[in-house]
Amino acid sequence: MGVGTVALIVAVLVAAYFVMVYNRLVTHRNRFKNAFSQIDVQLQRRYELIPNLVEVANKYVKHEKETLTAVMDARNQASKACKEASANPDKSGLVGALAQAEQTLGNAMGKFNMVMEAYPELKADESLRDLHDELTTTENRVGYSRQAYSDAVMRYNTEREQFPAVIVANTCSFLEADLFEAANEEIREPIKVAFS
């Protein structure tokens, strides 16, 4: 067997390995993208529910208009970030921006819930209660889909960072995927409560 034949066999083996790793990376990348689209589905449902909730609240709440406006603003912001991220989930920073917008929305919703406590007739409204229940269910699902997304991202990132897959990943531009986390550290800090 000549040197040429050996070289050919080695080259074929390397190429086969390259193809295998490449395919595995593609599978994992598609899995995490799919996991992201699950978050997207749940978030969209949530963004649909929030305006209805605000509309019902509008009938009862007279003096807390800015809370409602803040909720709607945060919702619009998050919805926009969601659209951008879902178009391109593996682009660096977009998922982080969405997570940040979600956090702002979460804070606004927290304030809204506090306002709700102060209006017993608002709390007693049946349609609001139904909406609120549905929102809670959707939020649970958002939580679970985020978890599934994080698992998929972890698997993908582990796969692409391992040697020698990292060579294939870097040559074929398999980018590192972002976890669903707020990039801005300030926002992640717990809300401070001051008693004055």
């Binding site: 899995r31 699902r141 889909s145 998929a152």
Partner: peptide, 12 residues
Amino acid sequence: DDIVNEIAVASA
């Protein structure tokens, strides 16, 4: 029903 839907999301 809720639980099954949630876990379906979590398990993809």
